[in-house]
């Protein structure tokens, strides 16, 4: 196809559009020759952050692997909306086995490829595994930790929408405190999900000392692709944790997915960073700090914090969590 260069000018947002960048810096997605690994026509909800995140991640990994990539996928929204037979959105070899064994299945794929390589067959094929937060931080946790600990040659991508969305929005160990889900109701003034529970898997991944761990959001797709690209430069176990807002489960209009992801990052409640061999090497600084309240207020899952009365105590605790992230990951210039 013929490409014609057009000149564009930036108009005062923080978003540097692809078209303002030199061609080599543009995203894989903006290229004519993108892979469309997760092709259009799938059944994700309108505005699904997971569909967007997966599209960028898998295509970037495909680009890095020269199109020679195999994916293992956990049960969850991504698996369900992308496939019911006879249709499939996947333009790469793809396997779904179970909800909780995706990392192990990927280990098996990588092991098979290693043997085939030793036999001079099927060279230069890379492996990714992907699942939702439930499939990763809860039921798939043992297999994932095993895969990390053995340093198997797999990039595992977790699409974190803060709950079991495919089964109707139940609490997972990645659900934020105070969030209402179907199993952490906020009836009669109850708080929703409890404070002081749950886990932030990127830090646990880091503790395994694996070659690469990073977080990202769908608000900064350049950063997301760059992290996939960097991850693919390593061999061994790698982990990418992507915040993917879910309009259905979080309760916000489907055109505000990117905005939600950006507010999560700019408030500090979701720290964006990268780590290599167990050490944090880079954090994505907050550009224009917002109070956590700005992130929470538009989401129905936090509505009980704002009405009928303002729950100042809960809001202060959530703000403290964000402030702790800001200190810990040095997300603001004054914390550097």
């Amino acid at each position: 196809m013929h490409e014609q260069p057009i000149k564009f000018y930036q108009t005062g947002t923080f978003t540097v559009g692809n078209r303002l960048l030199p061609p080599e810096q543009r995203t894989v997605q903006s290229r004519i020759k993108r892979y469309n690994s997760l092709n259009s026509g799938h059944r994700a909800c309108q505005g699904c952050g997971e569909a967007l995140g997966a599209r960028y991640c898998v295509d970037a990994a495909m680009e890095a692997a020269n199109g020679r990539l195999i994916a293992a996928n956990a049960t969850g929204c991504l698996e369900v909306f992308s496939t019911p037979y006879p249709e499939t959105s996947w333009q790469l070899p793809w396997i779904h086995s179970l909800f909780g064994n995706t990392a192990a299945v990927a280990t098996g794929i990588a092991a098979a490829l290693k043997v085939k390589r030793a036999k001079g067959e099927r060279r230069h094929i890379r492996v990714i595994a992907q699942g939702g937060d439930g499939g990763t931080t809860d039921i798939g946790f043992a297999c994932l930790s095993g895969m990390f600990e053995r340093n198997d040659d797999v990039l595992y991508i977790c699409y974190d929408n803060g709950g079991y969305m495919n089964t109707g929005v139940q609490r997972s160990s990645a659900t934020p405190p105070a969030a209402r889900t179907a199993t952490t109701p906020s009836l009669e003034g109850a708080l929703g999900n409890a404070f002081g529970q749950g886990k932030f898997l990127p830090e646990i991944a880091l503790a395994h000392g694996i070659p690469f761990v990073a977080t990202a959001t769908v608000a900064d797709l350049h950063d997301l692709e760059a992290k996939v690209r960097r991850a693919m430069e390593f061999h061994g176990a790698r982990y990418l944790h992507v915040l993917v807002p879910c309009p259905l489960g979080w309760g916000f209009p489907s055109h505000e997915t990117i905005k939600m992801a950006r507010l999560a990052k700019e408030s500090g409640i979701f720290p964006v960073f990268a780590a290599e061999s167990g050490e944090v090497v880079a954090s994505a600084p907050i550009r224009r700090k917002v109070p956590v309240e700005d992130y929470l207020r538009p989401q129905k899952r936090f509505a009980h914090l704002f009405s009928p009365t303002l729950n100042l105590a809960a809001l202060a605790r959530l703000q403290e969590l964000a402030d702790r992230n800001i200190r810990k990951y040095r997300l603001l210039p004054e914390t550097l």
Binding site: I95, S97, A104, G108, I109, A111, A112, R122
Partner: peptide
């Protein structure tokens, strides 16, 4: 068995 599943599906 899950590792065996992945490996077998890759032809090993």
């Amino acid at each position: 068995l899950s590792v065996a599943i992945g490996a077998s599906a890759t032809g090993a």
